[in-house]
Design a protein around this nucleic acid. Structure first.
Lengths: 238, 238
DNA sequence: CCCAATGTGCCACTCGGGGGCAAAAACTTC
DNA sequence: GAAGTTTTTGCCCCCGAGTGGCACATTGGG
């Protein structure tokens, strides 16, 4: 019976038009559909039976593509499970490159992050919830997610280092700033997922139920309070 | 001709008695020898031909153990290459559990780290240098190393959380503190390795030459200045 | 000296990931 | 709308990391 479910997944996804894909060429539309189908089927299968219990062969069979094709869309099995997070990091980076660097740089990073979270669409929210649910009980995925945040740090530091006066501000400070900013994210995300440990992270749950349990507003609240706690933490005395 | 070299490595290692292993039972001595032989041969082979170019089969052939045995000593190929780092984290954790928590907690973590670095023996320094050399041009190892620092963070936060007043200090602060402390390490280590990018990281180089190029004193200096820059970084304005 | 415990070797196996090449689909041009 | 060109895909091969089972050897204790 998982077979029927998978076929259902595929059809549903292929009929779903998340955005307008009329103006873009057919090739792009099909690629997008395949990518979304892979991502969606992966979340369903992983949540249903566990990340480790599902082999790539099963996944590609469900979406009816070859394993070779899978690796043209995602670099690893972990990547398809955490695609939503990667999209957030890309959006975050975009905000940073577009933001004017005035005043406290840490505040700028903070604002960019929250606006990036707010800027993602509802479809993203659903997938992100599922991804965090997977991460919560799959060490392998947790590693991958943490690593992605570290690499995002590097990109932030590079971007900042290029824009700030190269000589005036030492590289160490920029690097540390990126580290601290991501530290806040990791702490906030961890706290957020702990608060909602008992939620189902069910992809098929109606939207309202999700809104009642774990929401993006909660996440943003956690980010805000975590950034606010940074100063006190660094100066903690007992 | 790599075969001869490997045999040489094995014999050399097996004859080397790093510490006194007379008092401990024969089984323990043999296990220790095997572990050290694996670690040493791995560093030599990886530095010589590159981490990816060396297969586990080659490594275990060189040390004359089975692949099965290898995995009874190290959980992964990456782990044997970064064994020196893991030892540092264990020593670091030991210092933290033994240190009294008075005054600035960040200062305590800072001191524990530097004394831990100082407390490692000369044999460790040689292996650590080699490990960092490998990490510098092997993304896979860099990931593994960064991940190890993140997991150490978790252990620190758990330890600190257990000892600090559970109710008075919020969990977020402890978590952030551990994050910030490790951020300083990562930044210092990265800077240190960049400064010595042109060093050979040669295991066979005489000790004096190593002291001239990349030394533990340099590393500790970097740690100190990075910790000192923390406050300025977090408050950076432009 | 024998017996129990522990460590080791060998075997075969799974699974993630990548390369080469030929077929097919999609865009282009006439 | 039929040619040719380019991009995308499918299929088959391969490799290497990591695991499990079982028989064997080595060590330590009575």
């Amino acid at each position: 019976m998982p077979c029927d479910a998978n076929v259902d997944i595929v059809r549903t996804v292929h009929e779903t038009n998340t955005d307008d894909d009329r103006p873009m060429p057919l090739r792009e539309r099909k690629k997008r559909r395949t990518r979304e189908a892979l991502g969606e089927a992966a979340l369903h299968l992983f949540l249903d039976r566990g990340f480790d219990a599902v082999t790539l062969d099963e996944l590609v069979d469900a979406v009816e593509v070859s394993k070779r094709t899978f690796f043209r869309y995602f670099p690893s099995k972990e990547a398809v499970a955490t695609a939503a997070e990667h999209e957030l990091w890309d959006a975050y980076l975009d905000r940073i490159t577009g933001a004017p660097l005035t005043g406290s740089v840490l505040d700028v990073l903070h604002t960019c992050l929250t606006t990036a979270v707010r800027g993602m669409d509802g479809e993203w929210e659903r997938r992100f919830l599922a991804t965090r649910g997977l991460i919560a009980h799959t060490p392998q995925l947790r590693d991958h997610s943490d690593l992605a945040s570290l690499r995002t740090q590097d990109r932030i530091a590079d971007e900042l280092g290029g824009r700030l006066g190269d000589d005036t501000t030492p590289d160490v400070q920029v690097r540390l700033l990126a580290e601290v900013a991501m530290a806040a994210w990791r702490t906030a995300a961890r706290r957020w997922v702990r608060e909602h440990r008992h939620t189902a992270f069910d992809l098929t749950a109606p939207r309202e139920q999700q809104r009642d349990s774990a929401t993006r507003a909660d996440l943003i609240d956690n980010i805000d309070t975590t950034y606010a706690a940074l100063g006190d933490s660094i100066a903690l005395r007992i």
